[in-house]
Amino acid sequence: MEDKILLEISGLVKRFGSETVLNGIDLSVHKGEVVVVLGPSGCGKSTLLRCMNGLEPPTDGTVLLDGKAVTADGKKITELRQKIGMVFQSYDLFPHKSIMDNITLAPIKVQKRPKREVEQDAQRLLKRVGLWEKRKAYPRELSGGQKQRAAIIRALCMNPELMLFDEVTAALDPEMVKEVLDVILELAESGMTMVIVTHEMQFARAVADRIIFLDNGKIVENSKPDEFFTNPKSQRAKDFLKTFSFEKRKNS
């Protein structure tokens, strides 16, 4: 992790109609840092992530990437988004394109990079996650875990500076969760800056440099993972963690 701040959010407010989803978020993510966002469902985690790459325009406040506002409209935002990779909960591969085409489409058409170079990158990435054999397959021929790995690679092939993961394992069968999380862990080790929304507590603890606990649209805690999991400061976080430990005891 470096000292340089890559993403800076200040005073972020997001309202849908009369409902306030985010209520004054201040957060900075340093280059090379892995931030995991936790919180009960409906606390605004996904919305926060979507505000980070401008999929949701903020009601108030600013989001800066490398000092440039993500909230700007038009051409600027598409340029900024190329630096921010995002993977979603549901499989969002393009069903009408093969895995290879899914990965190379945006680098070739949006970034206008040479096809050969892009395909070499794609090949390297596909081999890294063990999907090279599936390059000609279509998304519907892949398992959920394979699809999510392909989606991660698709985002990576744009050479982003920041990766956003929005509950990427939430829709997966349990036995496929690990193969996806392993890829993200590996990414963390390689020094990628990431913001991750997840419900996998063990994974969060393993991957995170910092834990953000969100409740009712506000950051309630912002601490080191060990500190958060062993000694949460707020009652909210304690209650939240209890639900997991209770489940754990029952399962074991």
Binding site: I84, F88, D92
Partner: peptide
Amino acid sequence: HQYDSAMALGMSRVQTFGYV
């Protein structure tokens, strides 16, 4: 999600419609 993931890849509105 198809729109979202296309736009998250940096595609403009026109590109999102045209390619996806």
